[in-house]
Design a protein around this nucleic acid. Sequence first.
RNA 1: GGUGAGGUGGCCGAGAGGCUGAAGGCGCUCCCCUGCUAAGGGAGUAUAGGGUUUGUAGCUCUAUCGAGGGUUCGAAUCCCUCCCUCACCGCCA
Length: 432
Amino acid sequence: MLDAKLFRNEVAETAARLAETRDFQLDVAQLEQLEQRRKELQVRTESLQAERNSRSKAIGKAKAQGEDIQPLLAAVDDLGNQLEQAKVELHEVQEELHAIISGVPNLPDASVPLGKDEDDNQEISRWGEPHQFDFTPADHVDVAHKLANGMDFEKGAKLAGARFVVLQGAIAQLHRALAQFMLNLHVNEHHYTEAYVPYLVNHDTLYGTGQLPKFGEDLFHVQGATEKQVPLSLIPTAEVPLTNLWRDEIADEAQLPLQYAAHTPCFRSEAGSHGRDTRGLIRQHQFDKVELVWLVKPEQSMETLETLTQHAERVLQLLELPYRKVLLCTGDMGFGACKTYDLEVWLPSQDTYREISSCSNMWDFQARRMQARFRRKGEKKPELLHTLNGSGVAVGRALVAVLENYQQADGSLKIPTVLQPYMGGKTEIKCI
RNA sequence: GGUGAGGUGGCCGAGAGGCUGAAGGCGCUCCCCUGCUAAGGGAGUAUAGGGUUUGUAGCUCUAUCGAGGGUUCGAAUCCCUCCCUCACCGCCA
């Protein structure tokens, strides 16, 4: 959520920036009108409340002194109704305003290139050379198939439906090895606090990171057995629980920066992506991810984005997977981000780079929604934190990348050196 | 799942329809006193929003005692629903 002051004092400028960068049309006239109504109603409501309070106090005093309070009660008679009505109207206007404002995306940082979609993204760097195969590289589905049928989409479909998978044997083990390796790297070498978090979260939590109210259809929602139970949703990323650890909290400056890492499954309904990446592991309803989250002082957030991204890059470097780093343009960034780097890993079967990590600085956008704050030493007023998150990295897609980049002519798979300790020292997975 | 007890400021803990944004204590900040250490005295110490304003200063108003509704001129206090915590019992990985 953007600062409400931007909508009060600089509506026109804000609308122009949103239109330019986000192709987002802010209805300025409507907003101004609502804002004016809000002001009137709030002033009216609060002065009525003030009057009621002082009159009630007077009644209390009169009563204590044994005076007749009937006339005082009569004088206050109509006040209740007026107040009631003003409150209802104020509430309506505030709801309307809130609905509009909470649906406005974050403003991009000045360093972000203007653009419409992914074609306008800016490549920052490349790492590693795509391996030259002396045979036609198979895609990960075929590679896995030859390895003891380690990736079974039919079983996944039988158990749950389309976009689910069952991994077995060495492939399942490799999947686990990847997650373990990543989490260990971040916790042991990059000093993240390891966290185990709920995979189901409530709506307040989802609102905090920006999934609600706008993106509810991207999630799986779970209704408890009884109607009274609060509705929960499966997390689409561990960013949600990790960032919300500090919802409605005020950190001491000395506690900062806070950095968390978690390995969790992620659940996405992928509504609206019918027909995209239907083959293979690329786009599933359920996938694992190691997520990195930072909460920092505002003046540190931009340099933290670089650090965070490097941590994700390190995973790919150690796995010796070629990748490129891309700075997303304004039009391709997520709702709450002010600056995002994507890491795209080389997939030989597709002869292209595919997203495997996305690292974003959310500025104070989520923190404002969450009221996640900190207090500087010696200062009275708490300030909003800045939040950042990044995948470090997506486990399923990392598995895809390893399968495709490490495949051998005979159908067997070399195991990346850094994963070998997690695979019982094995150096390859033989085909059957 | 059952029964019982609770959820009050940074923390502990009173209050049980009006003068309570909330006693008292602890902690913290500032000042004073004390030749060290210890102790003592005084003042201050929530958050959000609105109005005023060039102002994140000041002044002022409003809201907040787990959440949401209700009763009332007036609710931390009474009623209802939900959430959470603790204890014991049952069940369970």
